[in-house]
Amino acid sequence: MAFQAPPWLRFVTGRVGPKAGVALLFLPPALFLFTLFVALPMGEAAWYSFYNWNGFGSPTQFVGWRNFDLLFANRAFRIALTNNGLIIAVSLLVQLPLALGLAMLLADRVRGATTFRLIFFMPYILAEVAAGLIWRFVYDGDYGLIAQIWGLFGVEAPHLLADPDLAIHAILGVIVWKYFGFHMMLYIAGLQQIDRNLYEAAHMDGATGWQIFSRVTVPLLGPTIRLSVFFAILGSIQLFDLIMPLTKGGPSDSTQTMVTYLYSYGVTRMRIGFGSAVGVVLFVICVAFAFDYKRVAMRHD
């Protein structure tokens, strides 16, 4: 049965279209929850970011832009920004190609494909904190897997997570391992949408494997690739829960990301105003990226 708008609604629907009645009915709960849990906290964070506030009571000490000045002058925050950049780079240049390659292998209904898909997807299912703890053990220089392997060759294993120069690379490895399965699944779904006849046609025209890949597969997979790039970049900017069990952002802040920085320099130091300033910067970066990317790269999708 079709939805019958009551008279008071018909006034509105008459003006803006027949579906508006439904919208008006379904909008308030969503709008209320969105306001309560998204819009209000964001507004509050923006407000707090101009105060020197330890989290008790209400903020009273207005400091203008000082929190932001301090933030951009801070060495650890610059490290965090660089690390976020590095994570994006590795996600795009290592993780996505790897995911695409494996997807190409596993998209066809070959023997064992489902098993391998499951195996590669497994790390993504694992909770971030659990994955972090597992890798903390793996990387342990005294008792971990790495130590065992190095031990076979009779050399002392490096303590990867304790070395300010190496720790971030160890973490990058975990990130690629953790999330490539997700992108692989996206690509497999995308690849299965491509019409087989196109490949046949390309074969008949004498296209080489590389030509088929670059002229047929990649263009037709475009929307999926653009989507997966979007997820990879946003995920990289917001990375937090994988790092906490691994290094907590240390040693010497060498593995901070913007969010771990927010946590250790804002929350744990009871500098909620300063932490909010970090949150605002993070938010602006994410929103600017999301809108620009949607507008530029995904405008046809």
């Binding site: 220089g141 303590h159 304790a162 070395d163 720790a167 290094t247 040693p251």
Partner: peptide, 10 residues
């Protein structure tokens, strides 16, 4: 270098 190997991660 008096501390154990990997002390920054301990």
């Amino acid at each position: 270098k008096p501390f154990q190997a990997g002390f920054l991660g301990t």
